[in-house]
Design a protein around this nucleic acid. Structure first.
Lengths: 152, 152
DNA sequence: TTTCTTACTTTGATAATGAAAGTAATATGT
DNA sequence: ACATATTACTTTCATTATCAAAGTAAGAAA
């Protein structure tokens, strides 16, 4: 993997060298928006990532301090992946990327509540999203989800 | 180029399939932050993009409606590249990516005024940045630049 | 009219991706 | 207890992308 070449110390290049590929941000999305936590759950997304690439991207994100990997106490075959603070800080990036895609895609596919949430104040949605993930929930799922807090 | 595979209609995947690679966002950065406009100017960045990759990425961004390409009226060898409205809409994404990189890079390299601008209100900076590019300037350069408007 | 510049294209080596099959550890059902 | 299933990988190999270097054609500058 030559993708971490440190081409420059530009802050934008720094970020792009970490999440600027086809899969990394989709994994962060699955965690932050859907609350996915295990290898099998990540495999099960619409974009159909392959196992070898998933293994590679998870190791990459872990090495870069975006996610943490722990053994699952209740099933010793499994590992539980979670966003670190650094990973949670990516939520504003993910929000803007989702916003741009929603506005510029000819036919965006997302839960109805996503389009409802976009009508709300950006600052509030981003703040609630960060709080949700810190509380162990995600945008759409869990007791502290954004949609629960906004009553959507 | 298989990078536009339409893996899903998720808004995040839609955006990532357009700008989720090593170079596309750096080109957008060069245009939005530095006001670069020509092939030679893009070649001349710290990250040292190769000519074949630059040609490919410029064609890709043009095809996706992010940038426009016109002949230079004063030098018929040249082309002038500019951000479309769709491209200008990426500025909030670029801002958040730059913000994350600035906060998480161990040794970020950027003009001093960038760090000054980060202390200001996000909404204002993003608004001024969009206005600057629409007026033919960029974040750092031109009569309507963000740093000119903020007196930095 | 020679030389330089610009925006490419071509070539060939190296690296990343993607699909499929394989594996070892652990869990589950009977 | 035993057979089967599941999980998180690893391996293999064909396809595709990237990168560096050299080449090119149109136009500008001296």
């Amino acid at each position: 993997m030559k993708r971490e070449e440190n081409k420059s110390r530009c802050p934008i290049n720094f970020t792009v060298e970490i999440i600027g590929d086809t899969w990394s941000l989709l994994i962060v999305r699955d965690m932050a928006a859907l609350g996915k936590k295990t290898f099998g759950e990540f495999l099960d997304s619409k974009e159909r990532i392959g196992t070898s690439v998933l293994t590679d991207r998870l190791a990459h994100l872990e090495r870069k301090g975006i996610i943490a990997k722990r053994p699952d106490p209740s099933d010793k075959r499994k590992f539980v992946y979670s966003l670190t603070d650094k990973g949670i800080e990516l939520i504003p990036v993910v929000y803007e990327i989702a916003m741009w895609g929603t506005r510029n895609s000819p036919d965006p596919d997302a839960p109805d509540v996503w389009f409802e949430a976009l009508k709300r104040d950006r600052e509030e949605v981003v703040r609630l999203w960060i709080e949700a993930v810190k509380a162990g929930s995600s945008f759409f799922n869990g007791p502290d989800s954004v949609i629960a807090r906004l009553n959507l």
